[in-house]
Design a binder for these strands. Structure first.
Lengths: 231, 231
DNA sequence: TAAATTTGTGACAAAATTGTTACAGGATCA
DNA sequence: TGATCCTGTAACAATTTTGTCACAAATTTA
């Protein structure tokens, strides 16, 4: 599911850092570590991680302070932050949310919990780059400008193909019968041959080009499915 | 980076308003708040905010209702609106887009996401101000002198073409239906054929000349779009 | 393997959409 | 008031899209 996400772990205690790193790597993430806020700043600028796990309490610059700095710079303002804290204190939570923290984890935590929360934040944060645009493996569809593009260059879609693609991109990994597609994409009360769907599928595939054909999969005896996973 | 933008937050729940306000202020925006659509109307007229963040569900007048009202008044028609909604429902999104909503954010959202979307809309909706000229690829429209020029020499535009161009230049990269254009450019309560829009589009294109025709793009089956990007 | 299903493809004519032009009535302005 | 400019419509032309068909290719079934 997309490229490997890189996570920066910031904590002054080495054992904790490593425990987290192991857990994340087992879950398929790539880790970088920093033992101080100073070093973290450097690594963030150099590596542009997809997320920062930040210890609340650290010598010199505190986690909250670092978070504030990240938020205030245009370049780093978009990087999600999860705060690790020993306190269960409500005040601090509120305070943290104000600083633009995306989630909290209270020590001690289980590796599984950490991974779950992390994934949840990534899910919430990543897919929404800008607008309501949907993106799948280089395919972008933006309902606001009403445009679709593959690997940067525009797709030439007829109205029906556009609607079909939009439906698929917002309903992935599920097989639909021709009848269902007619209902959802054409609109309930039209009478058209079921085979018409095949023709439009064909047109959509053609427009998508070689590189993205695989996304529109035929499910024999049933209908079609849109998915990044190979059949 | 330009003057400070003023954002009006309309939501009946104080904690949400404040959460948003803090996030926006950290991002360098100035906030006004309103806990009802009624109050919002007042504040909009008095303060002329640069954007309105609007909760979908509110007692008395709903967000969508308020949005409609803003659109129908000449003075408030071009204030960008972002809708906050708890529903993830496609239907509502479409519905909202038609009512002239500029973007949607589904609760729960992270402060960062909110700021990102907000900036994106502000970028797209560009300097809607009364006093500053807008420029797009050699096309200049100056609201003060009420003139438009392309590559230096003046354009010969009728009043309607001028308003159409102004609307387009301040609402780039977004597809509008003929109905929406009638609402936004002609003003809500006139009855004119949809095809009239096509004729004025044609006149505008003609006036723009070969070099700038490409800016006014037709979105088949939908309407028109103004954008520097090739289709 | 042959027969039967199911899906892929290209062609085509009808239908829908958009571009373009001309024109009559209003509005505007000197 | 007369001339000029603008606007909305209608009519027609150009273009694009759409649904079907007929046939090919692929897959399953017997």
């Amino acid at each position: 599911m997309g490229p490997v996400k890189q996570i920066l772990i910031v904590d002054d205690e080495a054992p904790i850092r490593q425990m987290i790193a192991v857990a994340l790597e087992m879950a398929g993430f790539e880790c970088i570590e920093a033992d101080s806020a100073q070093l973290a700043l450097e690594k963030i600028i150099n590596n542009k991680p997809d997320m920062v796990l930040l210890d609340w309490m650290m010598p010199k610059m505190s986690g909250i302070e670092l978070a504030r700095r990240l938020r205030s710079s245009e370049q780093t303002a978009d990087i999600p932050i999860i705060m690790l804290t020993a306190r269960d204190d409500e005040d601090h939570k509120v305070h943290g949310l104000e600083a633009g923290i995306d989630d909290y984890i209270t020590k001690p935590f289980s590796p599984r919990e950490l991974v779950a929360r992390l994934k949840s934040v990534l899910r919430r944060v990543t897919p929404r780059g800008v607008d309501n645009a949907v993106e799948v493996d280089g395919l972008i569809l933006d309902p606001i400008s009403h445009r679709a593009s593959a690997d940067g260059h525009a797709l030439d879609l007829g109205p029906t193909e556009y609607r079909l693609l939009q439906f698929f991109m917002t309903h992935q990994d599920r097989a639909y019968s021709r009848t269902q597609l007619l209902d959802m994409v054409w609109g309930g009360n039209v009478y058209v041959e079921e085979r018409t769907v095949d023709v439009h599928i064909r047109r959509l595939r053609k427009a998508l080009g070689k590189r993205h054909q695989y996304l529109v999969q035929t499910v024999r005896g049933t209908g079609y499915r849109f998915s990044t996973q190979t059949q």
